[in-house]
Design a protein around this nucleic acid. Structure first.
Lengths: 212, 212, 212, 212
DNA sequence: GATGAATGAGATTTCATTCAT
DNA sequence: TATGAATGAAATCTCATTCAT
């Protein structure tokens, strides 16, 4: 026991180095101006080498996306730990997405990109399996939360957890994406700040789902 | 009487023909695989000719977007005419966006594209002026609706019309975009149909804004 | 006598208007950035119309060149009138070329362009005939000057007027052309001003041709 | 011994092959009718490959120019070695430029082109550094020559070496350029041969600078 | 395993000139 | 006579990906 493991470890290490490099390029040059050449240079590797670790450009970018997702989910988990009530948990859930977009706009864009561009992946990658697992787990956590809320009598009884959660999730992500783009105009034309919008949004959602 | 008039008419006609061709290419090949060459060929014109009618590719694509927007806004107006109450109007408003995406998914995608990609246009085109006017008018209509609802005592008094309308608009568009992409998976994994989601969404929004 | 003449007069007038327009474009946009479209617009005419008055772009530019040549030759003639001696005439001759380049750099460039780009003209144009006549006359004037100088005992007896004049002419034009381009560098690197160079040049030529 | 060395050697070789191809195209088609496509075809390479070796078209053409300059400067050096006196050196200097134009008219044209077209290069290329060095060295050699002549009492004491050298250089190049273009006409109209002109020119310059 | 070299396949845009009216 | 419309023919440059070593 040794050589094979070491090899595998080194392989993963190098793979990670490449993702690091790619990330730095993406975050500096912008998501659709990345070139494989730039990544290779940043990683101090040959272009061809990248293809030993990733089937193509899309796959490499997907690996960055995955990192972003991990960060997001970790942010969510960490935040939830501090929450006291179910209601508080939901509130936090909404706000943490906003914060994720604020702190990691590039990850967010990547996240949105892969959410709205269903590429015909060879979906048999390890990366994709991990992604689906995480998605699943995350969704379940929300659903449990809604169930909990219903049992506690906080959330309306007539809500179907699954569609409700899906809807809020899609709507939240979609809204933040659009807002992140038009924020300057909204600011300038309507003088509405991000915090105001965030509060109004929370209010709206709460009024929509809370049992009063 | 009028060479000039005929010329102008023909010019508009040809312009329209080009947009037609562009549209067909976009809707067939996908939005970011369009090339000017393909459009020219479909229009049975020289590539250079396209540039007599549009300053550049972006401008041409924008013209398609504008068509989509006009269709959408017309769908909204037509629907609203049939509405009886303020509540009914709002309901219709939400549903018509869904319907727009169903009937014209390509227009919807273009619409979303131009909403989330702020390109540095030379915004001094006639097209852009028209676009901004339409946007403005559309937004105002919504705001009036909310105001109306508040006066009628249907909508919560504590809602600020402008952010509320913005939020619902962004969230609706964003959600439908995401849904349109992941619909197959949602269908397959969770067995949730579009109509169900649409109803749940309407319910959610109503609960969020209605005064009970 | 009347209609035909008026027609011809009008034709010339319009031709001149076009040259005017072309000139303004050339002098504003720079010599190799001129487009027929820009000229047509400035002249408030259709592009096709230009081709009724000039066989092609080259011919149109040649017409501007011709104007420049006329200006140059006129500057020379005017200057010579004020000269008192043969020696003075030669001095003036040299300096006036410098001045022409200073005052009309664009004409000068055109002048140089047509001097160093022998295009396969249809040289049977009226314009080209006029050009050759002027050239001839101008050259003769110089040669006479040298002859005069020799008779007066000012200029070395061993100089052959024709090659001498040709040489000085070519060398003067060529030098000024190069200088006009590298002037900034010469200024910066060697701190040699135009006036200094001009004086040195005059000195050099005089020492070369004067009989001492 | 070494892969790296071989690689570097091959790289230079290929670079040279490309310049060869470019040269053949330039010299055949004429300098401003060259296209990257034509060069690529002649070199039997893909267009994109050219861009691996040269940043852009200008850079590639500059490489040809540089070759010409090297040839010229070598011709000068070789000739000077055979010279016996300072006077003889100057004579040779003048004549060698004529000869350069005769033997390598295309190189000469390129030389002139780059002298009279200040292009906004990214002047940080290795090629440009070499060029400037050569220029500098060449100029210094001339100046030293004039200084030498003055010390030997051959050249007039009142001449400022720097402007004198600059003037002669510019005037010589400029004159030869013009002459190379109008030579046929001069021949035909005035029956003046190149050799005659060359002699007259040398005489003129000598009379201009020599101390008598 | 690593990689420098090579490229196919475009992409957008420009402009002098012609032609139908 | 005048012209708007149309275009052929380029031109430069880019980049993901493969291949030979």
């Amino acid at each position: 026991m040794g050589v094979a493991e070491r090899r595998e470890r080194e392989r993963l290490q190098r793979r990670n180095d490449i993702i690091d490099a790619a990330e730095r390029v993406v975050f500096k040059e912008g998501f659709d101006r990345v070139t494989m050449a730039a990544i290779a240079e940043k990683a101090e590797l040959g272009k061809a080498t990248l293809y030993l670790y990733f089937k193509n450009k899309e796959d490499l970018l997907f690996a960055i996306f995955l990192r972003g997702q991990e960060i997001l989910f970790k942010m969510v988990d960490d935040s939830l730990k501090k929450a006291k009530s179910t209601r508080n948990k939901i509130e936090i859930l909404l706000k943490v997405i906003f914060r994720f977009q604020s702190k990691h706009p590039d990850y967010f864009n990547l996240f949105f990109y892969f959410m709205t561009n269903r590429i015909e992946f060879s979906k048999d990658t390890e990366d994709h399996r991990r992604n689906e697992e995480m998605d699943q787990a995350f969704l379940n956590k929300w659903i449990l939360l809604v169930d909990e809320g219903k049992q506690e009598g906080i959330i309306r009884k007539d809500l179907n957890p699954l569609p409700t959660v899906l809807l809020i999730w899609m709507q939240l992500i979609g809204m933040i994406k659009i807002y992140s783009v038009i924020e300057p105009e909204v600011n300038q034309l309507f003088r509405i700040k991000r915090s105001v919008l965030m509060n109004e949004y929370t209010k709206l959602i709460f009024q929509g789902i809370l049992d009063t």
